[in-house]
Nucleic acid binder design. Structure first.
Lengths: 119, 119
DNA sequence: CTAATATATGAACAATTGTTCATATATTAG
DNA sequence: CTAATATATGAACAATTGTTCATATATTAG
């Protein structure tokens, strides 16, 4: 273990107990990976805007595109990303597809972030 | 206004009141941009791991690098990103620089995300 | 059935991003 | 002062990502 550290870092000021302790408390690698993936989805202006719009009511793809002066294709691609991340769900009504928030967890994450941004 | 929509979208099913209402309630463009930037910072495994490590205690650059088997340079670059986003702060002690969380808002955002990932 | 139309999607391209490598800077020991 | 060393940083490169364009798919009207 110590060998490994030495290979990768020339530094000597390694606080082993601190590292062991922190490693012990950390969620599994996979969870942290998924968490980063989740935040990545929130990390784009277009997607943030879409989510924000859906806080008020469900909307069809065309509404959202018109709302932000963006192409239908761009919005559709992003809705796909949001849906894969389970942040939005949709329902079909004839040719129109209405998107809405998957749960109100989404707003909580959004609001926590907002609070930090506003300071 | 309607003209503009037509230019950008051939769709006819535009719910104007819905759009107006949602646009009215939305935070300013700049806030949403900053919010996306914030989430972008959370949207990387390395940075998520660093933040997670710092939940337990402050750590020097070398500790973090050793902890995740990563180079000092990679960690240093990422700490810079985290610091610009005001998610971490640091203190100097001789040649060693110790990083810690800027405030406990960070953990709240993290935990909200974690809750969604765990489902 | 055909035409119209709302949405989805693949490929391409430009832009952004994370790591590595080399090296600069800052601090301490001597 | 010089040597050692913890950290920071710029340039380069590969990988990822968002939008556009063209087109496919699905649904409804007739």
């Amino acid at each position: 273990m110590d060998e490994k550290h030495v290979e990768l870092c020339e530094c000597n000021v390694i606080h082993h107990e601190t590292i062991e302790f922190a490693l012990d408390k950390m969620p599994e690698e996979e969870i942290l990976y998924d968490l980063a993936e989740l935040f990545k989805v929130f990390g784009d202006t277009t997607r943030v805007k879409i989510l924000c719009a859906l806080f008020e009511s469900e909307m069809c793809v065309c509404d959202i595109a018109a709302m932000f002066n963006m192409t239908q294709s761009a919005i559709s691609h992003q809705l796909r990303v949001l849906k894969s991340a389970k942040l939005v769900k949709n329902r079909k009504s004839g040719k129109v597809v209405y998107y809405s928030l998957a749960d109100d967890h989404v707003k909580q994450i959004f609001d926590q972030g907002l609070a930090h941004v506003i300071e």
